[in-house]
Design a protein around this nucleic acid. Structure first.
Ligand SMILES: [Zn+2]
Ligand SMILES: [Zn+2]
Ligand SMILES: [Zn+2]
Ligand SMILES: [Zn+2]
Lengths: 156, 156
DNA sequence: TCTGAAACTGATACCCGGTATCAATAACTG
DNA sequence: CAGTTATTGATACCGGGTATCAGTTTCAGA
């Protein structure tokens, strides 16, 4: 049988504090607290959310740690129109996001056809393609149940 | 001959002040100044840029007018990771953006294959798809010439 | 044309997310 | 252990954007 073009993003065992260490940063207790919390969360989060979850850690440190992780490629940063960016653990693989327009829940997916199309675009776009980003706005199943009102704006 | 899957976004004659009037807003001199300036600019712009261009118009009014235009669907708002969102006149058609990672220049395009793929994704994604967004990061031709350093970050 | 209600404007203060500063502290090195 | 360097977090600050609100403009109706 043909494999589906859509595939889940594998939850590769990423170790965030190793990612920091690999950048020459020290493995401190505070950083372990932050990375530990991020690893506990299963899904996307905002910086403020992390601050709330870790009242014992200074705001600056939370933001700095997130920035380090993004720089290390261990977190991906997802721009949210009209809102703070969200972060999620970046598995090694390239992927895209689904965002529930109602509750803001973020999911990840890969789709081989999408990537093939992107590749084929290269011939037709002016300039050198250096990357791309794609988000699919959805109403997630749990929100469908409650048929909530839109909270995130959508670029249709 | 077969039409290319890629097409330029038509520069439909959009009248921004009409768009405001259609929402029940008054056609004031200040608003004409703002919409006039936006129509002069050919391409994407930031709110601050518009404020600079129109020192005679209050910041609040510039931001309010932009918001009205976005609400009216006459401007599209493009999230820029690590930067202020950019706006461009929203032709009626659905489209996507190219962003030069080096200079920030924004272009628009449509690609029928992309839309077909998005449509086909509907079967495989959990929840109801309500929209999508896609940006292609490029190094534009003029930047290629100067091989400038990256300024905008890219979600690879 | 006058008049009052409603809309608009812009100076201001404020909010929010995020960052620079910097003195105090912790972590390494030898 | 002592010196050096990295880290931390309180604080002040910054940029983008919005709420407020008094003064001005618009406009429908008399
Ligand atoms: Zn939802
Ligand atoms: Zn992709
Ligand atoms: Zn460029
Ligand atoms: Zn599309």
């Amino acid at each position: 049988m043909a494999a589906s073009a859509l595939s889940k993003v594998e939850s590769v065992g990423v170790n965030l504090s190793n990612a920091l260490e690999d950048r020459g940063l020290r493995r401190t207790a505070t950083r372990m607290t932050v990375t530990g919390r991020i690893e506990q969360l299963n899904g996307a989060f905002t910086a403020e959310q992390l601050c709330r979850d870790l009242p014992g850690v200074g705001r600056a440190t939370v933001y700095r740690t997130i920035r380090h992780l993004v720089d290390a490629g261990a977190l991906c940063k997802l721009p949210i129109l009209d809102g703070a960016p969200m972060y999620s653990i970046a598995r090694i693989e390239h992927h895209h996001h689904t965002i529930c327009s109602s509750c803001g829940a973020v999911g990840e997916f890969r789709h081989s056809t999408v990537e093939r199309v992107m590749r084929s675009l290269a011939k037709e776009i002016d300039g050198d393609i250096v990357g791309h980003r794609m988000e699919i706005f959805i109403t997630c199943n749990s929100c469908l149940a409650e048929s909530a009102t839109g909270k995130f704006s959508v670029h249709v």
